[in-house]
Simulated scan of single mutants.
Amino acid sequence: MKSKVQTAVKNKYENGDGPAKIYRDLAGVVSLQTIKLWIEMIKNTGSINLSSPSGCPRTVRTKPNISKVKWRLAKKKRVSTRELSANTNISRRSIQRILREDLGCFPYKKIKQPKLTDLQKAKRIKFVNWVLNNYTKEDTEKWLFTDEKYFDLDGVYNVQNDQVWAVSRAEADKKGGVHQKSKFPAKVMVWLSVCGKGLTMPVILEDETMNAERYIQDVLPIALKCGNNMLGTNWAYQQDGARPHTHSLSQKWCDDHFPAFIPKTRWPPNSPDLCPLDYSLWNELAQAMNWDHITTKAALVDEIKRSIKEVEKEKVLRSVRDFAVRLRSIQKNGGNYIR
């Protein structure tokens, strides 16, 4: 029986993928040279036919052992290769090969997302239906989507992706293999908004605090000015359910000054997947920042202001247009969270 890896190679090749792309997609499960040999077989015979298994006969990756691993994986989905190795008396390396090459499995990190109650899902569906019944896709590009986020001097660090290749731990450390983290790093709160015309200027609060009074005094006038300059007189202001936003005085200010706004009775709770800043643009901003140059709070503020101008306009527009797509997805999935 052909392995799942061979089947994957054949399918990818027939879909137009080249050897290098297939190799990358399979994360090095088999060598590039092997993939090229298999593709030659497909060209000549239409399939991958191995007359005999390469190398020595299998003594560990046998059908019974593969079935054993598959059964344990189905019984307990959250299990490490180390635990599988201990429970099956198979080496960890062989377990990894069984998972990848024989079962076609790949490791995925758990992703954090808000836990939605049935009531919150119902409110999300109600909001989606309201938007789709009252606004076109072009209308939502005239919404000013807003959010706040903390930025600190320690920057953005991903333990899975920020890797340094070196011959030793000491050399890796010299090449920047240590991420130092302060116990109480200096930080600032950034308010930012976006629409189909682009990102606005930010409001940066260096003392980190926000209440309704400050929101009305320091943020909302900037939002009004940016919205009018970018969108004219026909646009709507969006904000989430943070306390300074839902305060009665904040709601009244919005009602009195904005051409239109999404009141607290409309915007669904626990829904960062509906704000372009949350699901896309905060990350784009963080990636555009040069964290090596940020050593003081003043430098952090300057870098935030500079990097907002560096975020690609195409990515900004795509993220805003994706809002309408997400509405449809939520309508189809019963109000569940989407990534």
Rank of each mutant, 00 (worst) to 15 (best):
V164A: 01
D154S: 02
R78Y: 12
Q180L: 15
E14H: 09
R58T: 14
K75M: 05
K77P: 08
N211P: 06
D17W: 03
K112G: 08
R326V: 00
Q120V: 07
F323T: 00
A299G: 14
P107A: 12
V128H: 05
N87D: 12
R214W: 07
D207M: 04
S67P: 01
K175F: 02
Y150N: 10
N15K: 15
G18S: 08
G46P: 04
A299L: 12
N44V: 13
K332W: 11
T62I: 13
N11C: 04
E14V: 04
E14A: 14
I39G: 10
D17I: 03
Q287Y: 14
E40K: 15
L119D: 14
H247S: 14
T88M: 07
F106R: 14
L317T: 15
T146M: 05
K137R: 06
S182E: 15
A299W: 07
D102H: 07
K149V: 01
V311N: 01
G28T: 02
R97M: 09
I42Q: 04
Y215V: 06
W71N: 12
I216S: 05
R243P: 13
V159Y: 07
T146W: 04
P19R: 02
D173W: 01
F261H: 04
C56K: 15
E148I: 04
C195Q: 00
R58E: 14
V69M: 01
K197H: 05
K126S: 10
A122M: 12
L103R: 01
K181W: 07
L220R: 02
K109I: 03
L119K: 13
L153F: 00
E284N: 15
I125A: 03
L50S: 09
H293W: 13
A298G: 11
S250I: 07
S182C: 05
F184V: 02
V30E: 07
L199W: 00
L224W: 09
S193L: 10
K75N: 14
S250W: 06
L224G: 01
K110E: 12
P114T: 09
L274E: 00
M41F: 01
E314S: 15
G334M: 09
A122W: 11
G227S: 03
Q33W: 02
S168T: 02
S94F: 06
S271E: 15
N336V: 11
E208Y: 10
Y108G: 09
I90K: 07
T296D: 01
T136D: 00
T81K: 11
L132F: 03
V190Q: 07
Y13T: 15
C254T: 05
I39K: 04
T117I: 00
T295K: 14
P259Y: 04
K187W: 00
E312C: 14
N270D: 08
N89C: 08
I222P: 00
Y108S: 05
I95S: 00
G241Y: 00
E14M: 13
D162N: 11
D302C: 10
A170D: 14
M210L: 14
W235A: 11
N158Q: 15
V301Q: 02
R321Y: 06
K174D: 12
W165R: 01
Y135F: 06
H179Y: 13
L119M: 12
S168C: 04
V203A: 06
D173Y: 06
M289P: 01
